[in-house]
């Protein structure tokens, strides 16, 4: 286990020589861990009545991968049809996820009324 961690840290160290990536990576892992913990925290308070909208709403948020798709296609060099097609499809599917997810959640939530 320790040997494994050592190996990984050595790889990261090698990377850091090339690109000074290690500090950046550590910062990002910090973000990841804190966001996950906060995610656990806020969800525990959601009542059972709202579990479905919560799920479809958070599902729409996971469509954030649209940002990745956009970045890919923005940075692409001209004249690479295969990359374009993959990026294009990524945007289409992510947009279905985002737009469909938020809309259907809204449709559901409209129905939740107190007397």
């Amino acid at each position: 286990m320790i040997a494994g961690l050592n190996a990984i840290s050595m790889v990261l160290a090698q990377d850091s020589v090339q690109s000074s990536r290690a500090p950046l990576l550590i910062a990002v892992v910090f973000i990841l861990v804190l966001a996950s913990l906060y995610g656990f925290e806020i969800i525990t308070k959601v009542p059972a009545t709202l579990h479905t909208p919560l799920m479809s709403g958070s599902n729409a948020i996971s469509g954030i991968t649209i940002i990745g798709a956009l970045i890919c296609i923005i940075h692409m060099e001209p004249g690479s049809p295969f990359i374009t097609i993959l990026g294009f499809l990524a945007i289409v599917f992510a947009m279905i996820n985002v737009v469909g997810g938020f809309l259907v959640t809204d449709r559901m939530l409209q129905m939740f009324k107190r007397k």
Partner: peptide
């Protein structure tokens, strides 16, 4: 998956990482 995708971009995309982690965590709790 969205969270992992955030790591492959250069620079790592914080929007993907944070949002992906939120959704990942919420799904686990549920």
């Amino acid at each position: 998956a969205a969270c992992a995708t955030g790591f492959i971009l250069d620079p790592p995309n914080k929007a993907l990482i944070v949002s992906g982690a939120l959704v990942g965590a919420s799904g686990i709790i549920l």
